[in-house]
Amino acid sequence: MKAWQTIAKIPPDALVESRLQLHYAIQFIAATGTALAEPLPDYSHTSLAWHPVLEVFVGSAIQAPQPFQVALDPVRLKLILLNQQSETIAALPLPGKTMAAGLNWLQQELSQLGVDGNKIAFLDYPPDDFPDHPLAYGASFDIHQALALGELANYYANTAPLFEAIIATTEDATATRIWPHHFDMATLIMLPGIKNGSPLTVGVGLSPGDTNYNEPYWYVSPYPYPDTASLPALDRDGFWHTQHWVGAVLPASRLAESISAEAQQPQVEAFLQAALRTSIALLKSESPAEV
């Protein structure tokens, strides 16, 4: 496992432009999975994963005469086609390219691999529920913030093994997935019991930033949402988010003041573990099992 890379070297709220460009760039992966991967009920065929060896975002494996996966190098903003051995088949640097140019390249390259590239189209999201950016109107990708891109990649690289540790010791936890809609990386834990007709779940995730917080943050969200009037205190500088959704939150700006891997990793790990225990306890105390 790769050692924790120190983060928050760049002010977390200075990552917004790079985060938005990455969010748009991963749409090529999601579009390919949606069009060509075997559909799954939870839509995970549209999701991505973090590849810890190549240090790229990677999509679903696509069955074709020449099987492949679409990947994105987040630091170089490079779109990559990988074969079954995770070797590069073709690559397109996105800086200087528009979304339309990237899609045209992807369609042509995939057609050479024996699939119908014309099936690939960008996903439609609900109005006002996907970040706006000049890339949506024909602007080109820009890599002038390479340090910020690398910093964002480290958030995912650092967090992925923490989630894997949770999954390994927790029953009924899904694989870690990165969702193209909100660009969050998360695992969902299913608990026994039902409340008000809904299964009991806890989502454990990392967001690179969104309309809730203009910076990366970790979250642990129990569902159905507990009563916000009696939420217990959180340690490790976490707090409860209660607007529109309920969850324990640790923003990047609250990481240990001594910016070092030795301080950051145990803080994030302890926050996730404690918030998970608290969330499970809240659901169990409020939710007698229903048959």
Results as ranks from 00 to 15, higher is better:
residue 175 A to R: 12
residue 194 I to C: 01
residue 114 G to L: 04
residue 117 G to P: 11
residue 99 M to C: 06
residue 95 P to Q: 10
residue 10 I to Y: 01
residue 46 T to Y: 07
residue 272 L to Y: 06
residue 47 S to F: 15
residue 232 P to Q: 03
residue 256 A to E: 11
residue 135 L to T: 05
residue 4 W to N: 04
residue 43 Y to L: 14
residue 199 P to M: 12
residue 242 T to A: 04
residue 9 K to I: 12
residue 279 S to C: 07
residue 145 Q to W: 10
residue 208 P to V: 00
residue 180 P to F: 14
residue 5 Q to W: 03
residue 8 A to L: 09
residue 228 T to W: 08
residue 47 S to W: 13
residue 88 T to D: 07
residue 52 P to Q: 09
residue 268 V to K: 06
residue 151 E to D: 13
residue 39 P to Q: 02
residue 181 H to N: 13
residue 93 P to F: 01
residue 246 V to E: 07
residue 262 E to H: 08
residue 105 W to M: 03
residue 221 S to V: 01
residue 205 G to C: 07
residue 202 V to K: 05
residue 234 L to R: 12
residue 115 V to M: 09
residue 119 K to T: 01
residue 119 K to H: 09
residue 46 T to V: 15
residue 275 A to I: 10
residue 118 N to M: 10
residue 117 G to D: 02
residue 244 H to I: 01
residue 70 V to I: 15
residue 21 Q to K: 14
residue 56 V to T: 13
residue 153 A to Q: 05
residue 273 Q to F: 04
residue 80 I to N: 08
residue 178 I to G: 14
residue 255 L to Q: 03
residue 230 S to Q: 15
residue 148 A to Q: 15
residue 244 H to Y: 13
residue 281 A to P: 01
residue 169 T to M: 03
residue 139 A to H: 03
residue 137 Y to G: 01
residue 122 F to S: 13
residue 39 P to K: 05
residue 46 T to Q: 15
residue 232 P to E: 00
residue 84 Q to V: 15
residue 88 T to C: 02
residue 232 P to G: 10
residue 156 Y to L: 09
residue 6 T to N: 06
residue 228 T to N: 05
residue 165 A to N: 08
residue 200 L to D: 02
residue 244 H to K: 14
residue 145 Q to C: 02
residue 228 T to Q: 12
residue 194 I to E: 13
residue 37 A to D: 14
residue 210 D to C: 07
residue 36 L to V: 09
residue 258 S to G: 08
residue 96 G to Q: 08
residue 274 A to V: 00
residue 174 T to H: 07
residue 65 P to S: 13
residue 140 S to K: 15
residue 75 V to A: 14
residue 167 I to A: 14
residue 107 Q to M: 02
residue 222 P to D: 05
residue 160 A to C: 01
residue 132 D to N: 12
residue 75 V to C: 13
residue 88 T to W: 01
residue 206 L to N: 11
residue 264 Q to M: 03
residue 25 A to S: 11
residue 97 K to L: 05
residue 21 Q to R: 09
residue 246 V to Y: 13
residue 9 K to P: 00
residue 248 A to H: 06
residue 194 I to R: 11
residue 92 L to I: 14
residue 81 L to G: 03
residue 111 S to A: 08
residue 25 A to D: 11
residue 62 I to Q: 04
residue 249 V to P: 10
residue 94 L to Q: 09
residue 284 K to P: 00
residue 37 A to G: 07
residue 286 E to I: 03
residue 150 G to V: 06
residue 125 Y to K: 05
residue 225 Y to D: 08
residue 30 A to L: 03
residue 202 V to Q: 01
residue 122 F to I: 02
residue 86 S to F: 14
residue 114 G to K: 11
residue 173 A to E: 12
residue 283 L to M: 09
residue 270 A to P: 06
residue 110 L to P: 08
residue 136 A to L: 07
residue 246 V to D: 02
residue 186 A to W: 00
residue 109 E to V: 04
residue 138 G to R: 08
residue 228 T to A: 11
residue 117 G to H: 05
residue 68 F to S: 02
residue 239 F to A: 14
residue 56 V to G: 01
residue 207 S to H: 10
residue 276 L to I: 14
residue 11 P to I: 01
residue 263 A to L: 12
residue 247 G to V: 02
residue 68 F to G: 14
residue 265 Q to F: 05
residue 50 W to C: 03
residue 91 A to F: 06
residue 98 T to A: 11
residue 237 D to G: 00
residue 59 G to I: 03
residue 253 S to E: 10
residue 18 S to N: 12
residue 33 G to M: 02
residue 50 W to P: 08
residue 290 E to Y: 07
residue 68 F to E: 02
residue 166 I to H: 07
residue 133 H to T: 00
